[in-house]
């Protein structure tokens, strides 16, 4: 694995007018070629943590380091060349074409009025290919299915040629096949192409099958951080999600099955 690209050291954040830390003392690092999953229940601070990672929010205490420099010392344009983000919600109002959308990922590399250079075109082309969206590069984004749109957004982030890719709930509202496709794509980008990856997700079972490390966050605090095997224990899952679970190993990876609340203690084997 490569160099550390993102680093949080004892990071705290409190929203103005709230008397509780949304993120309370999180330490974490992400290396190139490493995929880190961030999971936790609703309102656990996942999205706040992500905003801190990309420098949209400034930590109240502790430090965020991006590519060896404190995040505040980069301007947004420089950050956009290091970190590619696929945000959770995005409702396009103006229907650009797929290729135009992916081209937006080159803007952090381009001068204000300069024409696209060969490197820009090449990066767009390779992002389109890598995410398998070449076939509909000329279509308007308003005509895409949920799975296609998600791949286009990953392609846009890829066109930024980032050192680390951050995805916020990339599989929300996708069916099983498209969920798997998105995770396999991200995993391949990280493990094959060697960029760093951070995935914030509700899908714990899905995430543990692809990530190298998993951060479990609850109430803004780190409940567990480690390999899927270290983190995916009945004890941790039940404490964090406040629900009885059964742990099963599939493909050599622990998976959990939430039990019906009436069955507590008598887990059936599936």
């Amino acid at each position: 694995m490569g160099e550390v690209i993102l680093e949080l050291a004892g990071v705290r954040y409190r929203y103005p007018g709230v008397d509780r830390d949304a993120v309370g003392g999180v330490t974490l690092h992400v290396r190139e070629g490493e995929l880190v999953g961030i999971v936790g229940p609703n309102g656990s601070g996942k999205t706040t943590l992500l905003r801190l990672l990309v420098g949209v929010l400034r930590a109240s205490a502790g430090g965020v380091t991006v590519a060896g420099k404190p995040v505040g010392e980069w301007n947004r344009r420089e950050l956009a060349r290091i970190i590619g983000v696929v945000p959770q919600r995005e409702e396009p109002v103006f229907p650009l074409t797929v290729e135009e959308t992916v081209f937006l990922g080159r803007y952090p590399h381009m001068g204000a009025l300069a024409a696209p250079r060969r490197a820009d075109r090449a990066a767009v082309q390779s992002a389109l290919e890598r995410c398998d969206v070449v076939a509909f590069a000329d279509r308007r984004i308003s005509t895409l299915s949920g799975g296609e749109w998600q791949r286009v957004r990953v392609a846009r982030a890829l066109a930024q040629e980032p050192k680390v890719l951050i995805l916020d709930e990339p599989t929300a509202n996708l069916d099983i096949r498209h969920e798997m496709e998105v995770f396999e794509l991200v995993s391949d980008l990280v493990h094959h192409d060697g960029i760093g990856g951070v995935v914030v997700t509700h899908h714990v079972n899905l995430a543990v099958r692809f990530v190298d490390k998993m951060l479990v966050i609850n109430g803004g605090r780190v409940e567990a951080f480690g390999t899927p095997r270290e983190v995916m224990t009945r004890e941790v899952m039940e404490r964090v999600f406040q629900w009885p679970v059964h742990i099963e190993t599939i493909d050599g990876v622990p998976q959990f099955v939430p039990l019906k609340s009436t069955q507590t203690g008598s887990a059936e084997n599936e």
């Binding site: 990309v54 949209v56 301007n75 947004r76 344009r77 420089e78 950050l79 956009a80 060349r81 970190i83 590619g84 983000v85 945000p87 995005e90 409702e91 396009p92 109002v93 103006f94 937006l104 990922g105 803007y107 952090p108 381009m110 204000a112 009025l113 930024q160």
Partner: peptide, 24 residues
């Protein structure tokens, strides 16, 4: 407005995506 045509493209996506793509 002509000079800033690319940031305008990004802003059309929404404020947060525009930030992630390098716009102040």
């Amino acid at each position: 407005l002509y000079y800033t045509n690319r940031p305008l493209d990004l802003l059309s996506l929404g404020e947060e995506p525009a930030q992630f793509l390098g716009t102040d």
